[in-house]
């Protein structure tokens, strides 16, 4: 039996602007349970509270009502067990690629030799062999995202939380990043929560799609995506795919 790895239990969140009485309800009773090894996309229009939800799952912000759990423990603070891949790579600009990837290992107190070996392995996995000594400013956007992915994966997290990680990339680079992510995921079957506003992306990569409504965001529908893996870009022109896509778009627009 697969265990429930990550769940949201009745999460609501309202932002209030300091110094005024305006309040902005952003999340409304979000409930879901994600199994170990499952790849789930959360799909919603921009501004509906996706990042807010992810920040709560990551432990960056508390929920107002309800709570999130990881392996049955309540989430209270950020932890390398729930590694985050942000929308922008957010690498440390003063560290070169290898040191960026080794950063989390250092915090864990892993020996230098071991962390070097691990870092080199993951740098290779994301296709950046030979760029260990480059600084982030010397890399393209896509390469920076690869480093960002490597520095999270190297920590062997239980859950990978990804907040529209490829939305700033051009179509080609985005596709190759999706393929890279899937290839790595096939190898180790991490639990992944992948936030996106792109319907095709969600359908191409995930096992399940949770559709969020306009703000205040709530989950209006969950859809199992059963296309065979590995999924190819040609899938997007199949009838089943188009039908599912149309269904989701209608849901998003309603």
């Amino acid at each position: 039996m697969k265990r429930t790895n990550l769940s949201a239990i009745g999460i609501s969140k309202t932002f209030s602007r300091t110094g005024s009485n305006d309040s902005l309800p952003v999340l409304d009773m979000i409930d879901f349970a994600i199994q170990e090894g499952e790849f789930v996309s959360i799909l919603g229009p921009s501004g509906c509270g996706k990042s807010t939800l992810l920040n709560i799952l990551a432990g960056f912000e508390p929920a107002d009502i309800g709570h999130a759990t990881c392996c049955d423990d309540p989430i209270q603070a950020p932890s390398p067990e729930r590694a985050v891949v942000f929308q922008s790579p957010l690498l440390f600009p003063w560290l070169h690629v290898q040191d960026n990837v080794m950063y989390g290992l250092k915090q864990k107190g892993i020996s230098k030799a071991d962390s070097e070996e691990l870092a080199l392995k993951y740098i290779k996995d994301v296709g950046l062999e030979g760029f260990e000594g480059y600084y982030p400013s010397q890399l393209s956007g896509g390469m920076q995202h690869r480093v960002s992915l490597a520095r999270s994966l190297v920590l062997n997290p239980k859950v990978l939380l990804m907040d529209e990680p490829f939305s700033s990339l051009d179509a080609q680079t985005r596709y190759s990043m999706q393929q890279l992510l899937l290839r790595l995921w096939e190898d180790n079957r991490k639990t992944i929560v992948f936030i996106t506003h792109d319907v095709e992306e969600a359908l191409l990569i995930s096992d399940r799609v949770c559709i969020m409504s306009q703000r205040p965001g709530k989950i209006v529908e969950e859809i199992k995506v059963t296309f065979d893996r590995p999924r190819d870009i040609s899938l997007t022109s199949s009838q089943d795919f188009s039908r599912l896509k149309a269904h989701i778009l209608t849901r998003l627009l309603s």
Partner: peptide
């Protein structure tokens, strides 16, 4: 603040955030 979040989720405690993120940044 996002860079600090990145450090936190990678496992840095308050002191390490100070020495490895805030000071270099």
């Amino acid at each position: 603040p996002m860079l600090i979040r990145a450090g936190r989720m990678l496992g840095a405690n308050d002191l390490r955030i100070f020495t490895t993120v805030i000071i270099p940044a």
